[in-house]
Design a protein around this nucleic acid. Structure first.
Lengths: 141, 141
DNA sequence: CACGTAGTGGGTGAAAGTGGGGTGAAGTGG
DNA sequence: CCACTTCACCCCACTTTCACCCACTACGTG
């Protein structure tokens, strides 16, 4: 269960430290890929497997399916944290998310998002300003 | 599981180095053929077998099926990597994909795509700009 | 105040990518 | 059928990058 927000630095080699709270669930292996907006998504290997099979089973004849596959699969890397609990983000993923020297690691329950510090600021502002109460209604709270 | 994107050079002899992460799954043999867009598809021998049978089972009476068969089968070559983990791309396949001196190798989970550097740039731009969010809906996220 | 843990930074050896040269087999033409 | 050319494969050597290991700092806790 991934919860909380952490700001970590990224060094010259592209290494990011995984928050220690998340390490246990990611120790067995993880996959990073392009997310919805300008962010990266991190999945534990098991979660990823399920997701990937679903995508792989879609018909290649469809243009938009091919585009989607390319977005997700070519952008993905499977990694294992080193002894210090760090992973190396490939440069093309850093570029995609606009990550330069500081990364925000945000828990999303069953996966994790990575943001550049600036992009995260914006997202956070919108979150805090617009509290969409109807979303709570859906849950019966 | 083929994931990630790699840019490799192609030498005068038409040799392309397979990314080391992919070698294990391709060591037993592989098939290269024309892809859907301006790219080449690389399948591990096993995957190819399944795919080929499916195509072969389509009715020959259909014009478009015949055209498709010619495109896929006549364009296909089965190769084995050399000891350095390289394969030689026939010239007609290089021409088809517009590959000259740099190749992008992109993992697509159960197969691999080869692109010329320029063509890949374009594809990448489009997929990064237009995120078809409905595709995610299909997956139950 | 001492200790442990989390986060950060640097160095070094192995492996991956690249290029060239030599040898054997296959194809071509006389 | 033989000689020649060409191409493919294999081996060797070089460069560079990356993954691993070690060391340091900061912070929180007992």
């Amino acid at each position: 269960m991934f919860l909380g927000e952490f700001t970590h630095s990224i060094d010259d080699k592209g290494r990011v430290t995984i928050p220690s709270k998340f390490r246990g669930e990611l120790a067995a292996g993880l996959v990073v890929t392009r997310g919805f907006d300008q962010n990266l998504m991190v999945f534990p290997l098991q979660e990823w497997q399920v997701l990937a099979e679903k995508i792989a089973n879609r018909p290649l004849s469809d243009d938009s399916v091919r585009a989607f596959r390319r977005r997700v699969f070519s952008g993905a890397v499977d990694l294992e944290p080193d002894r210090q609990g760090r992973i190396v983000l490939p440069q093309y993923l850093r570029e995609f998310a606009g990550i330069e020297d500081e990364v925000v690691v945000a828990g999303m329950f069953n996966y994790v998002e990575l943001w550049s510090r600036d992009a995260w600021q914006n997202v956070r502002m919108t979150i805090e300003e617009n509290d969409d109460t109807s979303r709570w209604d859906d849950l019966g709270i």
